[in-house]
């Protein structure tokens, strides 16, 4: 489906954990959205003009429902947290490329999320587990990192595969990072799909290279247009990409998901 901007209707909003909100919208954008893509959400503050990039946590095509789970980090997301049933909000999408699910066929895959990088992996877990036999991964393991015992979405991940948890404060699961959890639990696999803060993504890129694994990283950066025109959100790439010819891929359009080997982070 082509990208579009439209006024979406709020179906519901609830709080999942401190500062973490679960917003469900009715919008045509849900149509062909795939895991790993994101949308640009606009505030109703007329002096705040740029869309906020928010990852897609869930898609229900039949109901035209898009689920966004986000953390309140500033003025824009604070305004989103006040939306309730029946409100309208402008949304631009679906944006970006999404996770390459075809790389999972017959492989052992590990989904690794950290903090507000957890939500986009939920739709991926759902889609991977529903693939036909020839396309499905051999097995799926899920490793999620949280600040503390407020492990939002954890029960939903458990519907699709075994879930391992790491917490910064050690209140639950492995005390430490998602990589500490891989080591502690001896979790092995062929392909990693991940989203999370940059230090975690750097760690996973290094870990994957050392263990001869493929890793697909979802990156974020400050964005303006969201559609590949402004060149605001770029990441250094190993090879010159077809669009820029200067080793600078656009995260919003060429990504946000990149093969870890292709980006210099």
């Amino acid at each position: 489906m082509a990208k579009l901007k439209e006024s979406a209707t709020v179906i519901s909003q609830r709080i999942l954990a401190d500062g973490i909100y679960d917003l469900r919208l009715e919008t045509k954008i849900a149509g062909d959205a795939v895991p790993g893509q994101f949308v640009g959400v606009y505030t109703d503050d007329k002096s705040s003009l740029l869309p906020r990039p928010i990852s897609i946590c869930g898609v229900d095509k039949e109901k035209n429902e898009l689920r966004l789970v986000y953390r309140v980090v500033g003025k824009g997301t604070d305004l989103f947290s006040k939306l309730s049933e029946g409100d309208h909000v402008d949304v631009l999408g679906p944006l970006g490329n999404g996770y390459p699910m075809e790389e999972a066929a017959g492989k052992s895959v590990i989904l690794m999320g950290g903090g507000i990088g957890v939500p986009p992996l939920l739709e991926l877990a759902k889609r991977l587990s529903k693939l036909s036999d020839d396309k499905r991964p051999k097995d799926i393991k899920i490793v999620m990192g949280y600040r503390n015992d407020q492990t939002f979405l954890a029960d939903e991940f458990r519907k699709y595969a075994e879930l391992y948890i790491a917490t910064d404060d050690g209140s639950l699961g492995t005390h430490g990072t998602v990589i500490d959890a891989l080591n502690e639990q001896s979790i092995e696999g062929d392909v990693i799909y991940t989203c999370g803060p940059m230090p975690m993504l750097r760690g996973i890129k290094k870990y994957a290279a050392e263990h001869n694994m493929k890793a697909y990283l979802s990156l974020e950066e400050r964005m303006a247009c969201g559609v590949g025109a402004c060149l605001g959100c770029v990441v250094a790439t190993k090879e010159k990409d077809a669009h820029s010819h200067v080793n600078n891929a656009r995260i919003c359009t060429d990504g946000p998901v990149f093969d870890a080997e292709d980006v210099d982070i």
């Binding site: 007329k46 002096s47 705040s48 003009l49 740029l50 950066e221 400050r222 964005m223 303006a224 402004c230 060149l231 605001g232 959100c233 770029v234 990441v235 820029s244 200067v246 080793n247 600078n248």
Partner: peptide, 23 residues
């Protein structure tokens, strides 16, 4: 031209700042 390092954009009241650097 490779342009400038990121962050290259920032929202401001009723506008934005950019420093793409003509990539």
């Amino acid at each position: 031209w490779p342009g400038n390092p990121v962050p290259r954009v920032a929202e401001t009241a009723s506008g934005m700042l950019n420093a793409i650097g003509l990539q």
